[in-house]
Amino acid sequence: MTSTGPDDHALLRHHGDVDARPGLLDFAVNVRGGRPPTWLRDRLAGALDRLGAYPSADDDRRARAAVAARHGRDPDEVLILNGSAEGFALLPTLAPAAAALVHPSFTEPEVALRTAGAPVHRVLLDAADGYALHPERVPDNADLVVLGNPTNPTSTLHPADTVRALAGDGRTLLVDEAFMDAVPGEPETLAGDSETPGLLVFRSLTKTWALPGLRAGYALGHPDLLARLARNRPQWPVGALVLEAVVACCEPPALAEAEVAAVDARDHREALEAALGALGIAVNRPATAPFLLLEVADGRALREALRGRGIAVRRGDTFPGLGENHLRVAVRSPEECAPLLAALRAELPMGVSQ
């Protein structure tokens, strides 16, 4: 467990979209397909006429009902969000006395809490065991615990029972499941768990449905906890297009498409893992998400060399617990990955791991 200071605030605000400059082949951002599927764009276009009216309570109820049906919850246990990032920005309203953030992981929860002056402690996991979760490392006095599952950027999927072990009386346990729908069958999800005390789950539609420009997601938890989280939100916090996107992406045809995409992503990830291994590049395993964490020699120089060849990868040193030799690469199809692998082959001597 480590405390943090203000010196790395700028690094914590760095995200993959900064690495993926226009004109580069993008392996830095984890968005499937680059744009929403045609059927989803049509649904959103059909909702444009509703922009002339304020989003209604009925619109919100419809979206919450769709999410509830998708996860086997009650609609009162759903809060529609402008993406998970909004949910992280709301965390200070919970007024934690001691927040524990499990790292390496997505950094926006830490940014929000630190900016609000909340005491923050980092619980660092180890590369030696694939960044597996160790509940005993979380301090007993933490009344807010935050972790990702599967975790960005390590691609580690934690067992649901191990995550549940972090719950406790008077503690809020936030699980960021932004990439869970990219795991076939979602075997370790807690989205349908209404029994674990203090459990809060965030889900995102950004990645699978290529909606980073719309910002759509939701939170699942006890109604009282959601009410505390949303206490300072403005009136009409979510627009009509977000509400329509949530409904559309929770319907059975969309869920079936997402499962097919998750299976494809798994197959593509395994192919990319094998190809990287053949180049002698160390890959964090086991990996389950649509991205891989690599460790290489002289990561900064390699990242710059790849950029010179027109390829963007995500720098890893902005994630607590990682360093300059860590890179994150998005999983694409073998055809799409061919230029990345060719560039790596040209830049790295055979047999180099780190």
Score class of each variant (00 low, 15 high):
residue 4 T to W: 13
residue 5 G to Q: 08
residue 7 D to K: 10
residue 13 R to V: 09
residue 19 D to R: 05
residue 19 D to V: 10
residue 21 R to P: 01
residue 22 P to C: 05
residue 24 L to Q: 02
residue 28 A to C: 08
residue 30 N to D: 13
residue 33 G to L: 03
residue 39 W to K: 09
residue 40 L to Y: 10
residue 49 D to K: 14
residue 51 L to V: 09
residue 57 A to Y: 08
residue 59 D to I: 10
residue 59 D to P: 13
residue 64 R to W: 08
residue 69 A to I: 00
residue 70 R to G: 02
residue 73 R to L: 14
residue 86 E to G: 01
residue 87 G to V: 10
residue 99 A to P: 07
residue 106 F to T: 14
residue 109 P to T: 07
residue 111 V to Q: 08
residue 115 T to V: 10
residue 120 V to I: 04
residue 121 H to G: 15
residue 124 L to I: 11
residue 125 L to E: 13
residue 136 E to I: 01
residue 136 E to W: 05
residue 137 R to F: 01
residue 137 R to W: 04
residue 146 V to S: 06
residue 149 N to S: 15
residue 149 N to K: 00
residue 151 T to A: 15
residue 153 P to Y: 08
residue 153 P to E: 08
residue 154 T to W: 05
residue 155 S to C: 04
residue 157 L to Y: 04
residue 158 H to V: 06
residue 159 P to V: 09
residue 160 A to I: 02
residue 161 D to S: 14
residue 162 T to A: 12
residue 182 A to D: 07
residue 190 L to C: 07
residue 196 T to P: 10
residue 202 F to V: 03
residue 203 R to T: 10
residue 203 R to D: 11
residue 205 L to S: 02
residue 209 W to Y: 13
residue 218 Y to N: 00
residue 218 Y to P: 01
residue 218 Y to A: 08
residue 225 L to R: 09
residue 225 L to Y: 00
residue 225 L to T: 06
residue 229 L to H: 08
residue 232 N to K: 11
residue 234 P to T: 14
residue 234 P to G: 15
residue 237 P to T: 04
residue 240 A to V: 15
residue 240 A to H: 14
residue 246 V to F: 07
residue 249 C to K: 06
residue 253 P to V: 03
residue 260 V to M: 05
residue 261 A to V: 09
residue 267 D to Y: 06
residue 270 E to W: 00
residue 272 L to W: 00
residue 273 E to A: 07
residue 274 A to Y: 02
residue 274 A to K: 12
residue 276 L to I: 11
residue 277 G to T: 11
residue 278 A to M: 05
residue 295 E to A: 09
residue 297 A to V: 07
residue 297 A to E: 14
residue 302 L to M: 06
residue 309 R to Y: 09
residue 317 D to S: 13
residue 322 L to T: 02
residue 323 G to Q: 00
residue 339 P to L: 01
residue 342 A to Q: 13
residue 343 A to H: 08
residue 344 L to E: 01
residue 345 R to P: 01
residue 353 S to A: 12
residue 354 Q to P: 11
